[in-house]
Computed example of a mutant assay.
Amino acid sequence: MTLGGLAVAVLLAVTGHWVAAVLLAALGLLMGYWTSPLRRGRHMPLAQALDGRDDERAIILWAPGDPLSARLQAAVRGEREDIAWVNVLKDPAASEFAESHGGRGALPLVLVGSTCLRRATVGQFLEAKAEGEERARADAAGPRGGE
């Protein structure tokens, strides 16, 4: 996509459409960066993330260049203590974990308590997070009335 965008930008520049050429080149470079495996992003080692695994916390295994991972990251912004982001390209244990759950095609892989979602969309993530928080509230309330 980056090379195609840059090629069209060169053609636009040759024909004298400089503004469009510069905008398209900038967009092509931005998309190249966003989808690059070299792009940094939020990351916590999988072992550390699994230590805090519970119903109130989500663990998201992601990879740079994965479109669904990028969508989820764009929708869930900012530093949040209730979400651990694990980059599978930076952590061999996370890569093995992802492989055992369907490989790169399963990303983003979302874990909330005992729930595991493959190729999670933003809606699925939010629903699993809400269900996990509800389970945690029910566990905290404990049995009622001699149940």
Rank of each mutant, 00 (worst) to 15 (best):
residue 67 P to A: 15
residue 78 G to R: 09
residue 34 W to T: 13
residue 112 V to H: 10
residue 53 R to N: 12
residue 56 E to K: 08
residue 40 R to I: 09
residue 48 Q to N: 11
residue 24 L to G: 06
residue 108 P to W: 07
residue 94 A to K: 08
residue 66 D to I: 05
residue 105 G to S: 11
residue 116 C to L: 15
residue 38 L to T: 02
residue 147 E to H: 10
residue 110 V to D: 12
residue 69 S to T: 02
residue 129 K to V: 04
residue 79 E to I: 04
residue 26 A to S: 07
residue 59 I to L: 06
residue 18 W to I: 10
residue 16 G to T: 01
residue 111 L to Q: 03
residue 30 L to Y: 14
residue 80 R to T: 05
residue 102 G to E: 14
residue 114 S to C: 04
residue 133 E to W: 09
residue 64 P to N: 04
residue 38 L to Y: 04
residue 37 P to S: 12
residue 50 L to A: 11
residue 39 R to W: 12
residue 20 A to D: 05
residue 105 G to E: 14
residue 86 V to A: 14
residue 45 P to Q: 05
residue 91 D to N: 07
residue 12 L to P: 00
residue 107 L to Y: 11
residue 39 R to Q: 13
residue 112 V to Y: 08
residue 125 F to Y: 11
residue 115 T to Q: 13
residue 96 E to S: 10
residue 47 A to N: 06
residue 100 S to T: 06
residue 122 V to M: 10
residue 30 L to C: 14
residue 80 R to V: 06
residue 77 R to D: 09
residue 66 D to H: 09
residue 104 R to K: 06
residue 60 I to M: 14
residue 87 N to R: 04
residue 105 G to Q: 09
residue 81 E to L: 08
residue 137 R to T: 01
residue 104 R to H: 11
residue 145 G to E: 15
residue 52 G to V: 14
residue 89 L to R: 10
residue 146 G to V: 08
residue 102 G to V: 08
residue 5 G to R: 01
residue 111 L to R: 01
residue 116 C to H: 07
residue 63 A to Q: 08
residue 77 R to K: 12
residue 101 H to W: 05
residue 3 L to N: 13
residue 94 A to R: 02
residue 71 R to N: 06
residue 133 E to S: 12
residue 141 A to G: 09
residue 31 M to W: 13
residue 84 A to S: 13
residue 38 L to W: 09
residue 16 G to P: 00
residue 119 R to T: 13
residue 135 R to Y: 03
residue 80 R to S: 14
residue 41 G to V: 02
residue 95 S to E: 10
residue 112 V to L: 11
residue 10 V to P: 00
residue 56 E to W: 05
residue 17 H to R: 10
residue 87 N to E: 14
residue 63 A to Y: 03
residue 119 R to N: 11
residue 115 T to C: 06
residue 39 R to L: 13
residue 106 A to G: 02
residue 114 S to T: 07
